[in-house]
Design a binder for these strands. Structure first.
Lengths: 197, 197, 197, 197
DNA sequence: TTGTAACCGAGACGGTACGTCACGTCTTAAT
DNA sequence: ATTAAGACGTGACGTACCGTCTCGGTTACAA
């Protein structure tokens, strides 16, 4: 997941990446985010701490990669039902499934906990993981606008931020349980952005 | 901020509360959330650590009280413009002003950072500080429903969560700058919950 | 165990003394010296800390009283077999029985641990508990001298200190197990102080 | 004072050992045992607490090393005058000089105070510092036995324990001042263990 | 009878040090 | 240049007791 190689000196052993990610996932499964420490991961993976930091300079980035890396999650944003309301509903339903697992929200809270405490780590988390996915959401809404389903005075990015932001805020922070949140959010926003009839 | 006194044993000295909050605010002003440590606050306030932990068992609770305690912030939710759209707009405008200050968001991120990392601390933060304010928001929307401005199939709590959650998610986590977020969010939600015409 | 009463004000409730000592013994039985803290004793005895400190100003004094108070231990030094060697042997045998119990040595070590850390507490422990018993030992040796069993150039107090000191040092500090220590010590000293034949 | 190096990972920096010991001695000189806290030592030595605990896991061990470490004190037990009585007298005279300084006994009492309160710390103190020195004493008495100066029914270790134990008990615990204790103890024991003439 | 003084349970208070944890950087020797 | 190992400085954590103090209230003797 890291940048290009410079081809000087001993090359990186990519098997190590896998061992690190595996050890991280194992720790997550065993004791949640709390059980993950850079030290513990390095030790469990049989890897020096330096080798770990060389690849993932901060814990939240490592854990995000281990837990949600690869195309996982991207899928949620890559739908096309033919209508804006359908797309938004599909996306939020997928996210709802994700947020339904206690283990998942625990990991997300942990990642956020560490990232929010360090400005630059938060920024990296955004750029590497959050914004790319948001761009998919932007595109989805943009498609709706092209179909004439979005009214004027509506900024695409604000809609995307509303959708993802509300999900994050509701599930990770506010914590008032509600079985209908995702679907109602989808309905309210879909109706709220639509052109006046 | 504490509960009723049972009148047994030596009563708490409320002057100490003030000294602690003062020291906390001073630290916040000096170096942001990062400059606040229970240790430093206790020392600066000339207070034993125990006296501090007796009142605020975790740092996020202390800092929230120091920064946003009292009726501050409550005011934002206690508006009554006569229409749901007006109320929502007013609330979000107020919150927008709050979130506009870097110092404020820094403190909020710090509080969240520490609270998200500890399940029970997060729960206390919710119960003591977030939910009471959310209840004001619930009431505001409930008022709109009583006036017939809210459609069926809309749960009051979900709307409130959407409003606050989206603000938190957008400003504290997602971090894509947008000068229009709050007002658009207000408009989208206000229109989204309204009865069909 | 305290000094004379001044007869002004409300008199002490002697039932409280008993409750405190009982709670202390209970704690000792439950978790050894480590389980005894002034706070815990006060709470378990249903007694204010002040009432406790009024009677026993330091923990070691309390614990000594609770564990070895009363005439216990005095008995060990109050023997009279008719010969110095017999007396010394009897005393050390008694002490050996005392030191044989792990629970006893644990308590003694705890008392010493706290007393050695505070000069004035150590001094009180000596004056109240150790020296009175040593005086009995002095008297015992003095009796031997009167019978002509002790050589010149032998100071009574030094002999008593040797006997008790060696027992304390061996059992509480040095900790090399030996089933024969007390009896050999008795023999060595008895012979060592005797007049030359 | 530490064990062999395994040559894996970054090696310990022995200059740090010296800085820690130096800071400890300085604190001892300034305010006695009471002035030594792991926290203060680490700070004064410009060293992390971890580096301190890595080398000396408990305070008494550190302080003993700083105050009596190295060959100091060993010398006291390494005499050879040609006779058992001479050897015992020489050793006790040396120890008497050591115990004569208030600063020394203060440090010893502090070490004991903390060590007696924790079983495993006491055990380490014994194994690292006390028993090795006792073994020298054992050897000294063994030499006397080889020369035929020690009677039967006398266990070498018991004699050594008697000598050291009585010194510790008398000077550190009992505290009855006596200018003749060490020399009389030497005489009594030397005569007490000798073969009957 | 009333005052005054010491008692009592409870628990707040300032203080001190503890030992632990994890961070992210660094120093080795070896590959 | 990378690797495994692990030492290093840093900083804060939350806990545990200490011995003193401040409450409201009680009990007994003396005036």
């Amino acid at each position: 997941m890291m940048e290009a190689r410079t081809a000087r000196g001993r090359p990186r052993n990519s098997a190590i990446d896998a061992r690190i990610l595996g050890a991280t996932r194992e720790a997550l499964a065993r004791g949640g985010y709390h059980a993950v420490s850079m030290e513990a991961v390095a030790h469990a993976a049989g890897v020096g701490k330096q080798s770990l930091y060389r690849r993932w300079p901060r814990k939240p980035l490592l854990v995000f990669d281990a837990a949600f890396g690869g195309p996982i999650g991207d899928r949620a944003f890559a739908v096309d039902t033919g209508s804006l309301a359908g797309d938004i509903g599909a996306v939020l339903t997928d996210l709802e499934h994700l947020f339904a697992h206690r283990a998942t929200t625990d990991v997300m809270r942990g990642i956020l906990a560490d990232a929010l405490g360090e400005a630059d780590t938060l920024q990296q988390l955004r750029e590497r993981f959050m914004w790319p996915r948001l761009h998919l959401l932007d595109a989805l809404i943009e498609r709706g606008r092209a179909r004439g389903e979005v009214g004027p005075n509506v900024t695409v990015q604000n809609v995307a931020d509303t959708l993802l932001g509300a999900m994050l805020g509701h599930y990770l922070i506010i914590g008032r349980t509600s079985g209908t949140f995702a679907s109602e959010l989808a309905r309210i926003v879909a109706r709220g952005v639509s052109v006046r009839r």
